[in-house]
Design a protein around this nucleic acid. Structure first.
Length: 496
RNA sequence: GGCGCGUUCGUCUAGUGGUCCAGGACGCCGCCCUCUCAAGGCGGAGAUCACGGGUUCGACCCCCGUACGCGCUACCA
């Protein structure tokens, strides 16, 4: 009598929302991982639940020094604070799987006792041969042949006693349907005949993901498993495990993948994938979070600009899409610029000072009030904080060379004498305001019988060395009379 | 190959049987504003809703099939 294995439905009562982000520490936080972590975080916060960080470090071959610290650093930078984790004790720790080996061992023994799992002593060579044979026979699918399931108790004890390397395998029962409901995929159905006798405990004594994940999610009382779509295919193994243990299953939600422009799974080959890369490039955490949140989710309206608290407010798993999303850098740039423009000048000041400290400039050369003026003047013109330095370097250092195109276009033979007229007028000003500069410049233009533009363009070139920037009177005022006159003189000497 | 998931403008998406010969956003193009560059405003190009069958008075929306894409198929997660 085949039994049908069922995961709980969406509406089933769950006492407390507890979700986890469970990355393996491979070196850095991938933006796909960020999205998974974010959705978990948003879901937890929205439902007044707990967000847990668990490190899945059960593959000793993949251990990377400092990876966990790096992961945590990135997570925290993004504002994803977890309630329990490796460095934040909770009542369900430890939160590093490598520190829970005895637990997995105990539950594996449990399963073996109930004959839902068994020792397997097959060598890698036999497994390899088996696979090749099955391929040669054109079997629809390669699976372990349950060879070691038929070992007698004595044989097993004998091999164990002799220290023969072994693993523990899941004993999948044939001819059953494994059905579960996924919030995003709806009902998903598998045949148990297509499920392999997965290794649960490796020969080095470490559990595989499948084993550790189920045991931990149960012990940590995880209510919802929100993870990437790449796990959907192995979910039947997990469902089987919950059932064999007699445990209540969590509610599953498998997230669509993040893709490269060519629609393959987002990878390092085609650009930056690590959160730290984006951070280094100068993206605001608010922008990265906002952008990534929208990759696969929307509230059902046209809103695209979100702060974290707004995301928490409107997030729901039901509104997560089911198809992969291409990571579009152009749109990330745009959302970054949006967030930057919405920041107060004071916030930008902090960011800009940080940027200056990390540049070759000396922070003590610039007062807060001076920087604030630059921020105000350039705010609409920068997409990154560092662009205050790269797009308007002339606020920090006088130009030493002049843009050729602008020189050809705006620096005419008559320009020098006209600028001298203007300069003389500037010289006579006493503590000039923006309006004073404007009045005087227009006066000069009028006296010279030329348009203001004829003065403005070469003046801009003289003051900034380039042809783009804030309004001329802002530029004059920020630089100040003395600097303005110096720069005009320098230009007059350089560009004849 | 097997199993699973998916498929609306280039990209992110809205859309839950009639209001859609499909709306918004990014990007692109044009105009306005203007001392430059931006920002902003206005407008434009851009999707036979993957394809083919059904169901229905009526399908982007429901069903079936096909194609294509992606994922999994490890003693990796």
């Amino acid at each position: 009598m085949p039994f049908i294995i069922f995961a709980p439905k969406f509406g089933d009562f769950v006492s407390e929302t507890r979700v986890r982000f469970a990355p393996s520490p491979t070196g850095y936080l991938h933006v796909g991982g960020l999205r998974t972590a974010l959705y978990n975080f948003l879901f937890a916060r929205k439902n007044n639940g707990k967000f847990i960080l668990r490190i899945e470090d059960t593959d000793r071959n993949r251990y990377v020094e400092g990876a966990v610290e790096n992961l945590i650093e990135s997570l925290k930078w993004c504002g994803l604070d977890y309630d329990e984790g490796p460095d934040k004790a909770g009542e369900f720790g430890p939160y590093m799987q490598s520190q829970r080996l005895d637990i997995y061992k105990k539950y594996a023994d449990d399963l073996i006792a109930k004959e839902h799992a068994y020792f397997c002593f097959c060598t890698p060579e036999r497994l390899q041969t088996l696979k090749e044979e099955q391929a040669a026979q054109k079997l629809p699918q390669a699976k372990y042949d349950k060879h070691c399931l038929s070992l007698s108790k004595n044989e097993i004890e004998d091999k164990l006693a002799n220290g023969i390397p072994h693993v523990v395998r899941l004993n999948v029962i044939l001819n059953q349907k494994i059905i579960f409901d996924d919030i995003i995929r709806k009902r998903v159905e598998f045949e148990s005949n297509n499920v392999d006798d997965q290794v649960l405990i490796k020969s080095d004594g470490y559990p595989t993901y499948h084993m550790a994940n189920v045991v931990d999610d149960h012990m940590m009382q995880i209510s919802h498993v929100i993870r990437g779509e790449e796990w959907l295919s192995s979910t039947p193994k997990h469902v089987l495990l919950y059932d064999f243990f007699g445990w209540e299953k969590p509610i599953f939600a498998h997230l669509p993948l993040l893709l490269n422009p060519d629609r393959s799974k987002l990878s390092k080959r085609q650009g930056d994938v690590a959160v730290e890369d984006y951070r280094a490039k100068g993206f605001l955490k608010e922008a990265l979070v906002n952008f990534v949140a929208l990759l696969g989710w929307n509230a059902g309206n046209d809103k695209e600009f979100y702060y974290m608290n707004e995301l928490i407010e409107s997030f729901s798993l039901e509104r997560v899409n089911n198809s992969g999303a291409v990571f579009d850098f152009e749109k990330l740039n745009w959302i970054n610029a949006e967030h930057l423009r919405k920041k107060s000048n004071e916030e930008l000041l902090t960011l800009l000072k940080f940027e200056i400290e990390n540049s070759e400039l000396r922070i003590e050369n610039y007062s807060d009030s001076y920087l604030l003026q630059i921020i105000d003047a350039m705010k609409e013109r920068v997409n990154f904080v560092k662009e205050y330095l790269t797009k308007s370097p002339y606020f920090f250092e006088a130009p030493t060379e002049y843009e050729e195109a602008s020189r050809l276009k705006n620096w005419k033979p008559e320009t020098p004498e006209q600028l001298v007229v203007l300069k003389n007028k500037f010289t006579q000003l006493n503590n000039p305001s923006k309006e004073d500069y404007e009045t005087v410049l227009k006066q000069a233009a009028s006296e010279l019988n030329i348009s203001a533009g004829k003065l403005i363009h070469p003046l801009r070139l003289a003051l900034s060395g380039i042809s783009t920037g804030p309004g001329m009177y802002d530029l004059l005022f920020i630089l100040g009379k003395g600097e303005v006159i110096n720069r005009i003189n320098t230009a007059l000497n350089t560009l004849r």
